[in-house]
């Protein structure tokens, strides 16, 4: 529709100043439509359709309401309409009906019926353990947690500024040692992180209880490594040393068609720290899975990995040969590296 008033059609200019309140009206983008939803049985106000004055035009009650009304007349207790009955209550004591419940509800029922508590393996407890003396106001561990009594020097900062650098583990997402985190994730199968974390803990425990390693001088560890007698007392350092010592410095990338004659050109590519660790952990995991489990139960895989890590530090692991082979190949192929020419 063309505008009723066309400003451009005037030959001379007309001073036109629109009123500020009519110029721009703020309107909601979405208009709220009147509610047209159906009421539940227990809704307090009647359904909007039920506005007719005539009795015969009114919609019928729900089945439950009708049953309730009937039972009221008969002097019985009808169905409960104020509140829905939970399925658990309906099938209570009915073995046949319980067998046909969905798996989730069956599991829940089973968990409720067996007296034992939750069987999780988290490192913290969500259940509070009251001390034996019945204290009406148990100390939740927060009373002695007094914050630093530092006055806010900086204006506009309510709680003062944190002292930098932040202490280790104060970031929620990076609170654990980074190599422990990475190895845990590499241990994980089928997304079962809790199992991987348990295995990680068992590995560290095994490293801690195993005898002091003897270092092979032909396979030197990282320079600056502590003496082997310090390793079992610091299992994370032990793990780091084992992984970093066998980690390759580079990988070989095969570039197709660069050499000509259908031969792939092998180009050494340097790896970053995380990539190096990943490579060596994968070698270690591969070797560990080839070992035989001597015990039984949950800790077998963790034990094999720990043995393989110890073998790495002692220079007995075949991961060293793989590392040396890659380095040798890298040295041979270093002529293939084409550095960008500087101008």
């Amino acid at each position: 529709m063309p505008p009723r008033l066309n400003l451009l059609s005037f030959s001379r200019q007309i001073p036109y100043r629109p009123k500020p309140q009519t110029q721009w009206r703020i309107q909601p983008a979405v208009r709220i439509a009147p509610a047209q939803c159906r009421a539940y049985v227990d809704a307090k106000d009647p359904a909007p359709a039920d506005r007719s004055k005539r009795v015969d035009a009114k919609p019928l009650d729900t089945v439950s309401d009708e049953a309730r009304a009937t039972s009221e007349v008969m002097g019985e207790t009808g169905p409960e309409t104020e509140q829905g009955t939970p399925v658990e209550d309906v099938v209570k004591g009915d073995k046949e009906a319980q067998a046909k419940l969905p798996k989730v509800m069956q599991d829940k029922l089973k968990a409720n019926s067996s007296g034992s508590g939750p069987k999780g393996t988290r490192s913290y407890s969500t259940a509070s353990t009251p001390t034996t003396g019945a204290d009406p106001y148990p100390d939740m561990g927060l009373l002695t947690f007094n914050p630093d009594p530092v006055a806010p020097d900086v204006p506009g900062v309510k709680f003062g500024l944190p002292s930098l650098p932040l202490p280790k583990g104060s970031h929620l997402k990076y609170r654990y040692d980074d190599i422990v985190d990475q190895v845990t994730n590499l241990l994980m199968r089928h997304g079962r992180k809790s199992v991987a974390q348990r295995n990680m803990s068992l590995i560290l425990q095994h490293l801690r209880t195993s005898p002091i390693p003897t270092i092979n001088p032909a396979r030197p560890l990282l320079p600056g490594a502590p003496p082997p007698s310090h390793l079992p007392l610091n299992p994370i350092l032990y793990l780091t040393l084992a992984i970093d010592s066998v980690a390759p410095l580079l990988r070989i990338r095969s570039q197709r068609g660069a050499a000509g004659g259908g031969v792939a050109l092998q180009i050494p590519v340097p790896l970053g720290q995380r990539q190096r660790r990943r490579t060596s952990v994968e070698w270690i995991l591969g070797n560990a899975s080839k070992r035989r489990t001597m015990g039984s139960g949950k800790g077998g895989f963790a034990q094999r990995i720990a043995q393989e890590l110890i073998a790495c530090v002692e220079g007995k692991s075949s991961a060293w040969e793989r590392r040396n082979a890659i380095h040798k190949l890298g040295v041979a192929a270093r002529a293939n590296i084409v550095m960008p020419r500087r101008r």
């Binding site: 490192s123 913290y124 407890s125 969500t126 509070s128 001390t131 927060l142 422990v180 974390q197 425990q205």
Partner: peptide, 20 residues
């Protein structure tokens, strides 16, 4: 506190067992 108000097994797990 992490050990659920002093549950000793959880405390051991959180402190010495290096259970993440």
């Amino acid at each position: 506190s992490l050990a659920g108000m002093g549950n000793i097994g959880e405390l051991e797990r959180a402190s010495v067992r290096l259970r993440v």
